[in-house]
Amino acid sequence: MKNIPVLLGAAMIALASCTQKENTTVKTTTSSENTAQVKTIDSLMVNDSVRVSDKVTMQFRAKMLYFPEIKDKALQDSIYLTFADQLNGFSFAASAPQKTSPFGEYNRETLQSFLKQTQQEYFDQTKKELQGMQSPSFAQTWYNSNKMEVKYHENGYLAIEYSADAYTGGAHGNYFFTEKTFDLENNKRMLLTDITAMPEEKISELLMKNLDKGTESKNYTRKDMLLVDKIPVTTNFYFDRNNLYFHYSPYEIAAYAAGDILIPISWPELKGTLNADFAKRMQIGHN
């Protein structure tokens, strides 16, 4: 996949829209007795496409979650800047994240405005890039799709999955995931050491042991497509009532054909290593 970055501050070029625009806010509400739970989650979205050359139509979709009850600035930065980095093409270069917030104040209006601005700048930059490239021989649609999704939200914890899916010509598109889990009671992003004291070497062994869990009915094994001898312990993790999950994007540990790989480790497998406070909040019987 050819990576075309978004350049913030690029001059706006008028492009005619060729499909219906969608800029909507969808509100969902969850109830909980735990004061650390967020009760309102807004979905801010943009969805539009433009013809950027005689053969290429570009579609841009983005869905950002907004948590109006989260007011801690450091926590807000950790939640929203990850999505801003992803939209601006820095997700493949973890060493170059946003150093300052492009939002100013975190509210529904500034976040929605950022999505619209980023969408327009992406269209502008794509059109500019195509001017120096050979046009495809047949009509095709390129796309850039980014979204946030809640994976877990109980016991004062909030797990968010950030995903991106893009195609800009070639044999296939590409996609990747970033997982972040937040402790809402202590206003921080969780580290693996907040969950378990198990050494990474032991966790790596469990990851290899559980690699093919959930694929038993398929006519292949993921181990056949591994690109590594030992599975590294990734910071892309989240959990639910039953398991701790480690998520790997295509090419990270296996061939593209293996797809993204989600490896579960059950709480009983971590028996004796769980953080006592974490186990108590999660009501896990083994600690």
Rank of each mutant, 00 (worst) to 15 (best):
T178Q: 03
T118Q: 11
F123D: 05
L206P: 03
N146M: 13
Y157S: 00
T193S: 15
F123K: 03
T25K: 14
A197W: 03
E201R: 13
Q86T: 14
L192W: 03
S217Q: 13
V46M: 03
A166N: 09
G259P: 05
F239I: 01
Y157V: 00
M64A: 14
E205W: 00
A164W: 06
E252T: 03
E149C: 04
N236K: 03
T35I: 14
F92C: 03
D260K: 01
D240S: 08
F103N: 07
F83K: 01
M58V: 06
A96P: 00
L130C: 10
I261N: 09
I13C: 08
Q37F: 12
L184C: 04
L191C: 07
G156R: 02
N174G: 13
N236E: 02
N243C: 13
N219G: 15
Q76G: 08
A255Y: 05
F246R: 00
M282N: 09
V150W: 06
T82G: 07
E200Y: 11
I160V: 10
L81D: 07
A93I: 11
A279P: 06
K55M: 15
A74P: 01
Y157I: 00
K21T: 13
G9A: 08
L244F: 05
F278V: 01
A10Y: 05
Y80E: 03
G89M: 03
A258E: 04
P97C: 07
Y251A: 05
Q98D: 04
G156C: 01
I160M: 01
D194W: 01
L81R: 05
K99Y: 02
D224E: 15
N242Q: 13
D240L: 09
M148I: 04
F103M: 06
D72F: 06
L244H: 03
D77V: 04
D42N: 13
N23I: 14
T168P: 04
E161Q: 02
E109F: 09
Y152C: 00
N107Q: 09
T40F: 01
A254G: 10
K280L: 10
M133H: 13
C18V: 15
Y248A: 09
D229R: 15
I70V: 15
Q117R: 14
T30K: 15
F176N: 09
E154Q: 14
